[in-house]
Design a protein around this nucleic acid. Sequence first.
RNA 1: GUGGGUGUAGCUCAGCUGGCAGAGCACUGGGUUGUGAUCCCAGGUGUCGCGGGUUCAAGUCCCGUCACUCACCCCA
Length: 425
Amino acid sequence: MTSSGITPFQAPKGVPDYFPPVSASFAAVRDTLVESARRAGYGHVELPVFEETALFARGVGESTDVVSKEMYTFADRGDRSVTLRPEGTAGVMRAVVEHGLDRGSLPVKLCYAGPFFRYERPQAGRYRQLQQVGVEAIGVDDPALDAEVIAVADAGFRALGLTGYRLEMTSLGDSTCRPQYREKLQAFLAALPLDEETRRRAEINPLRVLDDKRPEVREMVADAPLMVDNLSPETREHYEQVKGYLSALGVKYVENPRMVRGLDYYTKTTFEFVHDGLGAQSGIGGGGHYDGLMEQLGGQPLAGVGFGLGVDRTLLACRAEGITPGDVTRCDVFGVPLGDAAKGRVVALAGELRAAGVRTDLAYGGRGLKGAMKAADKSGARFALVLGDRDIEAGAAQLKELATGEQRQIPLDGAVAAVLEALGR
RNA sequence: GUGGGUGUAGCUCAGCUGGCAGAGCACUGGGUUGUGAUCCCAGGUGUCGCGGGUUCAAGUCCCGUCACUCACCCCA
């Protein structure tokens, strides 16, 4: 209840608000991850936040949880079914095919950042609106490209100063070997005394049962057949080469043959970055290789590889490690006017300082000197610029360094130059 | 969708077997009529989430409901 008696609005369930100073770190995390991709030649794409529902149904897979129960789907005013994007790859594929980028020089290397939506029950690190930075490298099936994508993610996390994460990966095989393996695994699981819920999962996605958290189930599947032991010679060779390139790139990884990905389109290499400081939702990024997706969406039969990195979760990981990315300082200089005449000069001066690239704020609302100085202190500014009638008469202003308390007089005419000099610029 | 926990000041929370609604931080003003962060003094806010019940009396006990939160599931 507010003082007016009106029930206050709340953000939609499971949607985080970020404001200063945390929002500065959020933006820094996103920008750092994007910069890592740009350094590897990935070009920015800006894509719609909603798409035709059928794109996700066909691209991500009807049987996935993401499509079957987590999509924000609604009819628009033209009675078309549209869906807020739950992941990024399908939309990129659609755009690439639609604009014929797959007919130009390959691979097409693209990078995106923005919000994604999944209708789930929120918990620590899991939101209904989540922010991701993603890349896709499309059109060339080269194990070196798989390794590059992984290395880009790894470099992004490292650039933030993160050390407490690990890279897990495996190979899921492809259409030449996974169907046979799947049958073999299902036969194995059918012989186990599993509960009904788990049995149903074994039907839809048997791999998922291998990743069950319950100790009794873990024990039962301890010697289940693994995909990595049933790869075709070609996919095995592909996987070995990815590992070789990763070593060449200096990227450390652990193999996890029981790793599961929630999206149907992955084949061959899949990977996940895991951080233990977040709670139950420990994945800060993941991705993999895909062979049939573009063809599935009406394009040419071209392979691709990509990742999605969770910006929200990466920020949580930073916090868990005591890292504060980015510059949370609001401003460099804070203007303190004394009286109406001075206020006009300070307002004008602030405009000039900003034009010169100096982050500048000032005391508004006619507060007294003491209040204005308090505001200057809280702004985090390095300098307070004090100006009163006395100074104007003298053609001067007072520049006070807040950390030391040292104050010097600067000429009012050359104030911008003097401030720049004081800032060491 | 299923379970557990929590709802008290702007924030973090205390409030015992029912008995006058509290602290710290933050905010505002003053101590210093041209100097902040330290220090001192002063100031204010509450439908105790909401609805019902028990009781002389409910923040406290009971029922319902909503919200938040953690976990399962799943994933970034």
